[in-house]
Design a protein around this nucleic acid. Structure first.
Lengths: 239, 239
DNA sequence: TACCGGCAGTTACGCATCGTTACCGACCGT
DNA sequence: ACGGTCGGTAACGATGCGTAACTGCCGGTA
């Protein structure tokens, strides 16, 4: 009621204009863009390190996480091609997030003072950075909603659905892909335990919604998966 | 080990430079700042509405929330003086968040195209907006960590601690304040049920850490509260 | 190639935390 | 005085956690 329920299109697309940003950045004489390769397990940067560059993911999959002084750790996302990393450190002098490559990655390093200087000269670049920041914020809101209101199995379904869509947006198959991250990583991201992730995957597989073989996922019925990721029970047979 | 555990100072301070931004904005001939008053329960804006301004909270307390098409709702924060609202809509043409006043509020409305135009002319204003965005992102990361790794009671303790610190940062008392939001709001924010919030508050009160009388909170022992909000059990007597 | 150790993943079982339901009291505005 | 909303408490039960054992894959090594 009231005006219209808040239906912001939730499964947010990755940053548009990746190539646009690449063009802008590389064409700019202000910004000396360097290409950096990472092997699986290698850190792009760690929390506490001095912040002096933004990074645009060009290929590969990564994991972002934060941790507290008492040792707790929380995965906050799984960046892939098109995502701009490091923006959360703007205004701080050190990073607050750990970024680690899950497989072979290639990122473009944009030295920070230079980027900001270029932003002052190029409104389009500034807009791109700001929009990237805002997009990230909306993405976080989506996951807060998901983690705050859904059960363990629904979270896993929502996670797969998100991965599926992001893969499609990058030109990969939406119904057959590889999980680059471990069960533990998924569990941390979703705020549950890794056994529960396994249980949920098995459950979804048992219902024929997906097929799982270790890290290989096949989405057999996207509609059912969508159903599983939503608020209410998907199949209430007899009650 | 490695470099040093990721200990980014977590209970993040509210945006510094509130008055700075006010000055910049009001002094600017580009931005026609208008003051807007809200009564308790009134919306500043709703998800789906056209995005055409940022808002700087000057006085009062508000509640931010997102919701999904299937009716789920999640409180994402409780903005107060110094917070810049609407930034998450940058790059979108409609809002994705609901903002409602919890008591009498006063906000400064900064028409959006004008602000961005002013940003182009004033690097300091641009920096302020960008930093505000990044700060919000780090705040979200902190709450993801808190909600993902702590038990219900620890979350409530962390919530009180955060409120306490924000009050102090604004010049209010850190050990005696009023909850402007209902138990249901707190529960939604923390990803638990309102009865559990009540239980946790009662439990903390029983231990003498705080005193609760409806919405009136007294922090009797800040250190113990801090202890309760941290990873491990605060008091392991015999085991 | 064959062996072996280690890690990731899976499954089962018992249990604790938190959700559910219900009821009651306090405060608010009309 | 009244009804409604909000808050507090308690009993019950289910979701998901902890532990533990087992499997299979992959690395190294001889």
């Amino acid at each position: 009621m009231t005006t219209i329920a808040a239906v912001h299109s939730l499964p947010l697309p990755p940053l548009r204009g990746v190539d646009e940003l690449i063009d802008i950045a590389t064409l700019s004489t202000y910004v000396p863009v360097t290409r950096r390769r990472l092997r699986a397990g290698e850190h792009l940067y760690r929390a506490g390190q001095r912040f002096n560059a933004l990074y645009l993911v060009h290929a590969g999959f990564l994991r972002a996480s934060v941790s507290s002084s008492d040792g707790r750790q929380q995965v906050t996302g799984f960046p892939m091609r098109g995502d701009l990393l490091g923006v959360e450190a703007i205004g701080s002098d050190t990073h607050t997030v750990d970024i680690v490559a899950l497989d072979a990655c290639e990122v473009l390093e944009l030295p920070y003072p230079a980027v900001m200087a270029a932003c002052a000269a190029m409104a389009s670049l500034q807009a791109l950075v700001t929009r990237s920041l805002a997009l990230e914020l909306r993405r976080d809101h989506y996951w807060m909603l998901t983690l705050g209101t859904l059960t363990a199995e629904q979270r896993v379904a929502a996670f797969l659905l998100d991965l599926s869509r992001r893969h499609r947006a990058l030109g990969f198959s939406a119904c057959h892909f590889l999980l680059r991250m471990s069960r533990v990583d998924i569990a941390s991201f979703l705020g549950i335990k890794h056994e529960t992730v396994t249980r949920a995957l098995s459950q979804l597989a048992a219902r024929g919604v997906i097929a799982v073989e270790r890290r290989e996922i096949r989405v057999l019925s996207p509609d059912d998966l969508q159903q599983c990721a939503e608020g209410d029970e998907p199949a209430r047979c007899a009650a």
